[in-house]
Design a protein around this nucleic acid. Sequence first.
DNA 1: TCTTGACTTGGAGTTGACTCAAAGATGTAT
DNA 2: ATACATCTTTGAGTCAACTCCAAGTCAAGA
Lengths: 134, 134
Amino acid sequence: MTIKEVSEKYDIPADTLRYYERVGAIPPVTRTAGGIRDYQQEDIGWVELAKCMRSAGLPIEVLIEYLTLFKEGDSTIPARFELLTAQREVLLDQRRQIDETLARLDYKIGRYKIAMEGGDLSWETGEEPDWTAE
Amino acid sequence: MTIKEVSEKYDIPADTLRYYERVGAIPPVTRTAGGIRDYQQEDIGWVELAKCMRSAGLPIEVLIEYLTLFKEGDSTIPARFELLTAQREVLLDQRRQIDETLARLDYKIGRYKIAMEGGDLSWETGEEPDWTAE
DNA sequence: TCTTGACTTGGAGTTGACTCAAAGATGTAT
DNA sequence: ATACATCTTTGAGTCAACTCCAAGTCAAGA
């Protein structure tokens, strides 16, 4: 698979795919005799992992660390386990944060809906103080 | 409340509080006669909103847009409703993404646990291809 | 073979969100 | 009244994660 095909299939700019490889977020991609990238299943697996992690907001640094450990072999399995477990906690925190914000957003949205339907805008006065109280 | 007190209470650097105000993510804060910030309940309400939104990952630009509309008065209520509703969708997407990554992480973590306890590392071979298949 | 388009690298530029520094004003405790 | 901490602004610097550019190489079609 060419870089363009991977780029289109996973909706990641080709420049970003090269960037990931350059900084070591994914291993060096298989090349043709002429030096052109020819992604194999294994290469694509790493691209998928990178996309997954990044779209959840995990930093590239984590991918680099994971790959570094991976390349060092089986002795780093406990370290990789710790790394993934720590990132799992980060994501759980992030999800809690999102849920909190969603609740606040839903409250505000509900208020706006009432205001728009009922035409009652009195609640707007001192809008922020009201919200902070809840 | 001084900027330092707000900074400590909400765990936001004073520089960041000034930055939010400077770019218009929160309205101008109440000042003392001497020009020093003296946060009132309403000011704090906006700080809380900013913190909530930012920690969920929503861009500052959204806060700026919301505040801009807010300052324009009641006629922008439908626009504010739309803005909040759109951001709600963004957060729901983000949460879906996090859940997907958590599933992948949990799978990997489970594999590492088995490898560490059982000492069976054979699954490591061709690690990535295996994972992409699931 | 020649053209054309996609690919290559290395390095510079951009964006968003802070973060820091300098120089000066304010406010409080002695 | 005088230190001294804390505040002020303006503007520059930093960092992560891309994103773009230039100059050149590779490969498929006429």
